[in-house]
Design a protein around this nucleic acid. Structure first.
Length: 474
RNA sequence: GGCGGCAUAGCCAAGAGGCUAAGGCGAGGGUCUGCAAAACCCUUAUUCCCGGGUUCGAAUCCCGGUGCCGCCUCCA
């Protein structure tokens, strides 16, 4: 089956063919570790996770690189203000980033190069550009002279003429010939961070790290480059200018960009209170798996509106999936139907959907159709043992891509276990009023009970009210 | 001002000229249950922002509106 991706470079769907058969090299722009990543950042990382998992599922050997920007204006400023070294300043943010990614079941990349550990590579790249006549030095800084790169603007479609020199003055800038030129190397700003270079002590410009590190880990041309839409201009445009001017080769063959996540119809904003980290949502009682579902369930090129209503819906949807998976796993019947045709069709439809530019909505729809059909068969005892085995194997396979079938483990505290036991006791005594009261109390604690022929079982429930407003209401 | 995107049921969201407009959530009714939960069954868009046009045929193509959103130098 052919995979097609929407390539920002051509603005159309293109058939995907890796450079090297069976192998895909992916560069994904990672976090700038000056603060905790928010759910919007994780929307992009979740998309990249889906991309990678799907390519693997299709049989490709995938190598993913995600940079960690641990030196830039913000990290330097933060470290200075906190009175600590750059490394000390960024460490907790890096640790939290990995922890949150794990919580959302985002698989690790193969490489997480840090900017601060690749200064020599960046200096080498700048020298290479210098030798090619693409740079100029001014007041201790080195700039990229965009007029030397004819292809500038091909990714973003930005009309160079619209970037009027002097129309916008950056407070942090030094002395550039043209407003659109950008810094490859910046002088030491009086802060703590600084490295020696042929142009004097200083630090790298932001864009150069991605050019240098992608080249090091993936080669001068690789298959897929991803990031959020905001990176299209100027970041990715500048990466292209740097890398392609240096190598004379295309940087990446497919550029995939994920749309932004907004909150309650508005851009995430700290001042509006519509700014959420993963921890914020978890603190409100939401299941990380529901958050994963929500992030994944909207097509990556469509803006995702995060709402509490949406989170509740995602909680219900993902519970349906995990409940179903458990039911199939535990199914002990052996009816006459092996169900093989339905399962095969569902798997094929799943693949067709994702082949089409990661069409997740259709893929999920086929899964829900399968869930309904299989539940019906199990209700009627029509599913055979062999069919059950095929179904489980298929679900496991699909879950390599989605990772949505296994519920977040629910650790019961001692108190909750006692409440459950007490309710069981009350039920046995047919004291239903007391049993129901206890069940309600547990629900308030986020534990939902189900009485089944095999005994009581429990699972995580939706967060108890109230969960607060998305932003401060005036 | 330049470039780009989106408008489909109460909410979310597929659909890229042609079988009865997916799926999820929610809501209502029913089966099951001590009651629930889960599951299953039924109902919930004669219609796809508005107005033209192309076509035998358009949610899907074209033109014109309206509304919302993103980017335009370091924000995923």
């Amino acid at each position: 089956m052919v995979i097609r991706f929407y390539n920002t470079l051509s603005r159309r769907l293109e058939r995907f063919e890796p450079l090297e058969a069976g192998k895909v090299r992916v560069y994904t722009c990672g976090p700038t570790v000056y603060d905790y990543a928010h759910v919007g950042n994780f929307r992009t990382y979740a998309f990249e996770d889906l991309l990678k998992r799907y390519l693997r599922w299709k049989g490709f050997d995938v190598v993913q690189v995600m940079n960690l920007t641990d030196v830039d204006d913000k990290t330097i400023r933060g470290a200075r203000e906190a009175g600590v070294s750059l490394g000390e300043y960024t460490k907790p943010y890096i640790e939290t980033f990995f922890k949150d990614a794990d919580t959302l079941r985002i698989r690790r990349a193969e490489h997480y190069p840090r900017a601060t550990e690749h200064i020599p590579e960046m200096i080498a790249l700048v020298k290479r550009l210098e030798a090619g006549g693409h740079t100029y030095a001014s007041e201790g800084a080195v700039y990229y002279r965009i007029s030397t790169f004819p292809g500038y603007g091909k990714l973003s479609g930005m009309n160079i003429g619209s970037l009027q020199p002097g129309a916008r003055v950056d407070v942090d800038e030094y002395a550039k010939e043209e407003a659109r030129d950008f810094a490859l190397w910046k002088p030491f700003g009086g802060g703590e961070a600084g490295w020696d270079s042929p142009w004097g002590p200083g630090r790298p410009g932001w864009h150069v790290e991605c050019s240098a590190m992608s080249m090091k880990y993936l080669g001068e041309t690789f298959d897929i480059h991803t990031g959020g839409v905001d990176n299209i201009f100027p970041h990715h445009e500048n990466e292209i200018a740097q890398s392609e001017a240096a190598t004379g080769k295309p940087l990446a063959r497919y550029w995939l960009h994920s749309e932004h996540l907004i909150v309650e119809g508005q851009r995430m904003s700290k001042s509006l209170g519509s700014y959420f980290t993963l921890q914020d949502l978890l603190a409100k009682g939401y299941d990380p798996l529901a958050i994963r579902y929500l992030l994944l369930s909207t097509h990556y090129r469509r803006q995702l509106n995060l709402t509490f209503e949406g989170l509740d819906a995602a909680t219900a949807a993902v519970t349906r999936l995990t409940d179903f998976y458990r039911r199939v796993s535990e199914y002990g019947g052996d009816g006459g139907e092996d169900f093989a045709e339905d399962v095969g069709k569902a798997a094929a439809a799943f693949e067709t959907s994702l082949d089409n530019d990661l069409g997740i909505a259709d893929a999920l729809a086929t899964i829900f159709d399968l869930v309904t059909a299989a539940n019906r068969a199990m209700d009627r005892g029509e599913l055979s043992a062999a069919g059950r085995g095929v179904l489980v194997a298929t679900l496991d396979s699909l879950d390599e891509v989605l990772d949505l079938f296994h519920p977040t483990p629910l650790a019961l505290g001692e108190e909750i276990e006692k409440l459950i036991a007490a309710r069981e006791e009350a039920r046995r005594a047919k004291d239903y009023a007391r049993a129901d009261a206890l069940r309600e109390k547990l629900a308030g604690l986020g534990v939902v009970l189900e009485d089944t022929p095999g005994g009581v079982r429990w699972k995580r429930g939706a967060p108890a009210e109230p969960r607060g407003e998305p932003r401060e209401t005036r």
